[in-house]
Design a protein around this nucleic acid. Structure first.
Lengths: 267, 267
DNA sequence: CTTCTGTCAATCAATTTTGATCATATCCAA
DNA sequence: TTGGATATGATCAAAATTGATTGACAGAAG
């Protein structure tokens, strides 16, 4: 058994379980404890795992959901003011009693705050959105089934015939990584899959993107612009992008980031 | 039981209720009070929780988020010791890597603490169980789709062809309102519907019921006894009930409520 | 006021884990 | 094949963890 082989086995075992003991790894590899300890030391130096008393544990990627219950810890605070203004404009499109679909994302997540005082029927594939609305609102919440992907914070089923197909709404709200002449773009294939599953279950497609997204380009095209009914963005949208949207016959709503809007806050 | 595992379980338990006593954590982990106190001290230094007299509390004050916030607010504290012992025995049946189904309920919810240090595939229709495991464990979580019923805390889809049909597991764990000669009984038709949807997706059916459930009678029969593989209960089970289970060829596991119990069961 | 109970810190013994050392085995190149 | 370098296994002392015991202390009960 070569060193590389053992290291692969150790790393594999560490991924399988929260903690692996030296003894476990001994019986797994058939070598002595001393060797396993040396291997763990080496891998610890290489940051491939963390060494703990009695064995090793997987290096924990920065806990996204763990700490204060704040999902999307990294992205959450980026352009927060714009996202909140955009999300508020999105909720303003709705009335109590409406059925809507909300696709998971950091921008759409901001819709939960204005939605807290509403009573609507909300279908989502986002666990944090469902969680928040469940705790802080009286909306009816419907959830798509499937596996929970921790990194993306969405629920996705690999099957075609799930409950998603049985829910139909007037509007669907979603974000995007970028918006260009080719349409909506996304970086993560998993998100593409989740979004394409929901598109088609609603009449109108409302896209929430802050103005920086018009200069973003990603590798994967989600859907063409003419499928989009409305784009909500902030007031720093480039003229060229506005023209592009107009040419594609997309309704554009510009949310004012400034304070002009906040005294008529709905209760 | 290694230090990391204990810490996971302690943090998991602390999130569950406003305060956890040292004794609780002893029976939950199977180690001595001294060790638990040392662990609490360590976690207190790490700001992972706050240390209080008699035990520990979460660093974030218990969120008072209305009725639906704390799962099962009323039932939660009833017979908590029995439920925890039963739930622990249930998790002891499983090994890392297993696929299981957990039906929502107050007893099955207690499985989340011993599950915190596991790495398994878990399918559930309970939002609180999914939420807790997502935040405090590394298990793979799969969720059934549908509407979230706030009172029962479960997710239920009225459709036949949802993702539930695509998940199959070795074992399914569930609670019940009562157990009698006719079989498992439940009071809420909604719960019946949810449970019947999951029964059949697993080989073995493991029922978690504290001993008081053998004198309960409810109006609705969920399934006959011969569908049940195993019943886990506590040591106050009446002889008559034990005989009934034996007659029905049901394996019975009696979880010891007291602190001194088997801890060599693992692996 | 006394007693009792539960909690906690300190201490000690037992066990486990670790680090270091050394002898042996294996591999690679000359 | 030989020589040297490296990897492995075994052994043992040091260090860390754990469980049990003890006494101190605070609050409840009598």
């Amino acid at each position: 058994m070569h060193e590389k082989e053992r290291h692969r086995i150790i790393l594999s075992a560490v991924q399988d379980r929260p903690v692996v003991t030296v003894i476990d790894l001994c019986s797994l590899t058939g070598v002595s404890e001393a060797t396993i300890r040396r291997d763990i030391s080496t891998l610890h130096m290489q940051q491939k795992l963390r060494r703990v008393r009695g064995g090793a544990e997987a290096i924990t990627p920065p806990q996204f959901v763990g700490l204060a219950g704040r999902p999307f810890a990294v992205n959450e605070t980026l352009r927060i003011a714009e996202k909140q203004a955009i999300a508020r404009a999105a909720v303003d499109l709705c009335e109590d009693g409406d059925s809507i679909i909300i696709n998971g994302g950091t921008t759409t997540f901001q819709m939960v705050h204005p939605l807290a005082s509403r009573r609507m029927q909300i279908f989502t594939n986002s666990f944090p959105i469902a969680e928040h609305l469940l705790k802080h609102s009286k909306n009816t919440i419907m959830l798509s089934g499937g596996a929970i992907y921790r990194e993306q914070n969405i629920i996705l089923s690999p099957f075609e015939n799930d409950v998603t197909r049985n829910f139909y709404a007037k509007r669907m709200f979603m974000g995007a990584q970028g918006v260009g002449p080719l349409g909506l773009m996304e970086a993560d294939p998993l998100l593409i899959q989740a979004e394409q599953k929901l598109i088609g279950q609603a009449d109108e497609l409302v896209v929430l993107v802050d103005s920086s997204k018009f200069s973003q380009r990603s590798s994967l095209v989600l859907c063409p612009l003419d499928r989009v009914t409305t784009v909500i963005t902030d007031d720093r949208i480039p003229d060229k992008a506005a023209a592009m949207l107009e040419a594609a016959d997309v309704t554009m709503i510009v949310a004012q980031t400034g304070g002009a809007q906040e005294d008529e806050a709905a209760s």
